[in-house]
């Protein structure tokens, strides 16, 4: 055990130190160059490793995957757009796409609404209670998707009528005199049951950023509205929210990016059964269970294409900010 721990520490030190050593050495080399060259080269020395890493571990593999999406299951024969056709003709994959769209519409909006509600309401409490309530909502951010799925397993668990319920929600339902509900199996709303888990995890993140933005809304704009006789509700929707809009966009996009990749919750709770399939889970199934590399590649390329609008918005926003 002792050796293992020493080894662990050494491994970490090697990993961490190796990264830092790279810069120290590169810098030392560049500083020995003539000043004119040093000036020219140094920026690239500073950004070089970061650029190299994204090119090597993101861009290059992505390009290979795009290329692979035009080949068959084993990546041997060119099949043209066949894999992309399958996206829309294969029922299971098509359903995953539709479900992902549902997630993308509902979850970011729900996170913003919940986050905004908590931020606003907690703002009206005493300092101590504001702090406590915010920490509570923030806490699930530290929990893994696998852990959260276990936690919510105990909320949604179903036992047939008349048997002792071990799921909290069904205990409440049966206390109220109704029949227990199979939350994760009912096609009508089971997607939303899974989304609740995601919102539960991420609303705290939204709340913290929105709360910061709320505190930064200038007091005099609110006072002015109050003097003009606006109601609290009018003040909130017409004065406060518009001034927080850029933060709302940031929160929305950040959650949206997470939602598009959602995988663990669905994998653990339903594995895509009962019409709950999503793209990222389907991808894992295609690639590792069915070993359909070409089709899996097409699925993930489609997912990437779906992110392009978000990418464009992000870049535009960045440009706009830069020109301020």
């Amino acid at each position: 055990m002792a050796i293992k721990i020493i080894n662990a520490i050494l491994a970490m030190a090697a990993g961490v130190g190796g990264g830092i050593a790279l810069f120290v050495i590169l810098n030392a080399v560049v500083e020995r160059l003539p000043i004119r060259w040093e000036r020219r080269i140094k920026p690239y020395v500073f950004i070089g490793p970061a650029i190299f890493v994204v090119l090597a571990f993101l861009v290059y593999p992505a390009v290979l995957t795009i290329y692979g999406s035009f080949f068959d299951a084993r990546g041997e024969n060119f099949v043209g757009g066949e894999n992309y056709v399958a996206l829309f003709t294969d029922d299971a994959i098509f359903r995953a796409i539709v479900n992902n769209l549902k997630w993308m519409v509902v979850v970011p909006a729900a996170c913003v609404v919940v986050g905004l509600a908590v931020a606003t309401l907690a703002d009206r409490l005493s300092a101590k209670w504001e702090s406590v309530s915010k920490s509570i909502i923030f806490l699930p951010m530290a929990i893994s998707f696998v852990g959260a799925s276990t936690i919510w397993g105990f909320v949604y668990a179903f036992r047939p009528e008349g048997r002792p319920q071990i799921g909290l929600l069904n205990q409440i339902v049966t206390w109220l005199g109704a029949s227990p509900v199979a939350w994760l199996q009912a096609r009508l709303f089971n997607d939303y049951m899974l989304m609740i888990v995601f919102v539960w995890l991420q609303a705290g993140f939204a709340m913290v950023l929105l709360s910061a933005a709320l505190k930064n809304v200038p007091m005099d704009t609110i006072e002015a509205a109050r003097v003009d006789g606006a109601s609290e509700r009018q003040i909130f929707f017409r004065v406060v929210v518009p001034q927080m809009f850029s933060t709302i966009v940031v929160v929305f996009t950040t959650v949206l990016i997470g939602v598009m990749k959602v995988f663990d919750i669905v994998r653990v709770m339903t594995n895509g059964n009962f019409d709950t399939e999503v793209i990222a889970n389907r991808f894992i199934t295609e690639i590792f269970t069915f070993r359909q590399f070409g089709r899996a590649a097409a699925i993930v390329v489609f997912l990437m294409i779906a992110t392009i609008p978000v990418m464009v918005v992000n870049i535009r926003r960045f440009r706009a900010q830069e020109s301020l």
Binding site: K4, I9, L10, A11, G17, I20
Partner: peptide, 19 residues
């Protein structure tokens, strides 16, 4: 870092694990 890399490499031989 350089030292740890070397040390890790040595220990590696013996324990076959960890790093």
């Amino acid at each position: 870092a350089v030292f740890s890399l070397l040390a890790a490499a040595c220990l590696q031989e013996d324990s076959g694990g960890g790093g």
